[in-house]
Write a protein that binds this DNA or RNA. Sequence first.
DNA 1: ACAGACATGTAAAGTGTTACATGATTCA
DNA 2: TGAATCATGTAACACTTTACATGTCTGT
Lengths: 196, 196
Amino acid sequence: MALEHAILVSLAERAASGYDLARRFDKSIGHFWQASHQQIYKVVARMQTSGLVSSIAVAQEGRPDKRVYQITRGGRSLLYEWSRTSTPTERLRSEFAVKVRGMQFGDPEAIAADIHTHRDAHQQQLDLYRADEIKNFPHPDTIDPKALGAYLVLRGGIRYEQGQIDWADEMLELLSVNAVPTPRSPTHRDRTGQLL
Amino acid sequence: MALEHAILVSLAERAASGYDLARRFDKSIGHFWQASHQQIYKVVARMQTSGLVSSIAVAQEGRPDKRVYQITRGGRSLLYEWSRTSTPTERLRSEFAVKVRGMQFGDPEAIAADIHTHRDAHQQQLDLYRADEIKNFPHPDTIDPKALGAYLVLRGGIRYEQGQIDWADEMLELLSVNAVPTPRSPTHRDRTGQLL
DNA sequence: ACAGACATGTAAAGTGTTACATGATTCA
DNA sequence: TGAATCATGTAACACTTTACATGTCTGT
């Protein structure tokens, strides 16, 4: 039900069409929960059936009509009740970590390259978050209570990205120290029998 | 296919029954990818059909028979090829973060309590990781190449858990500074929720 | 006697991804 | 003319969770 909750939070902030929601799930709320437009249309339709949201059709000039969804009282009340139930602790789930874990069965150079790529991607995301922080929260001591949640998750995102970068740096450092011995010798063959 | 890869990594390290795999997915490999025994039995059966693993029935005394799975050459080769393809960058996905984000629509005290709970859970996991580190990797300068992957992901796990703890502390600090209107009398509580 | 570990599954429901589908307007 | 944005979906498939199912042996 996490997607329902994410949609409710987003609609509680502001009414939106399915398309708008899909774009928000590419940014803001999507930094912490992703969803495709296909999934959003399906789930938001179901949420209307169960009374959590209502919708009105809006005609537009020069653009297709859209259906704008609003959160209902029932939706707000569900959101409130949800906030009072404890969220089970989440565990890490990372295909990247599985790959690193199994590095002895793979190509160390390719994996090192992948670590580099990951480092760059997380650096990029960190830069975006930092810009967002400077733009929207220049005075951390006096945060508008309505924006406090957004600020706190932004801080979490920043910490997460920085953590990923630091981890990547540690791995690359350890890989260069514990370097795999002399790769280019003709006696070394990979599993398919090809020379390395 | 991430579960297949995780199973291949686990079986490459050591042959195992479905039951053994399920237990490993509660620990070691499971720190980074979770799976239930139902899912494991299903997927490992499929992997046998596609030739990635093979199995032999093993009779045991005083215990039910078991089916022990081994990785095949095809499995090792797939693992190797997989290590050479780049893993798409993973994004954060956290119901907990969604809840914090929407805190203005919920019960601030309940959410603060949830943050405490999360802090404690991550502290516990961190303690387990630290113990693992001291026990299995007392000399980080000279890591057995075969254990390097396991060490690197352990370091990642440690950084992740510490990051979650630090984030929780920052949130609790900010919540007490940007305090929501007049809570109950003894307003000062430490991180474990005890009165000061 | 009962709980817990060992051992392996089926079935149903829910969640998420990928492929396919359509059609209008705006900007280069 | 062609790409991008706006706008909304269906269908098939893959993955994950939850509930149900069975039976043995070991230790308290």
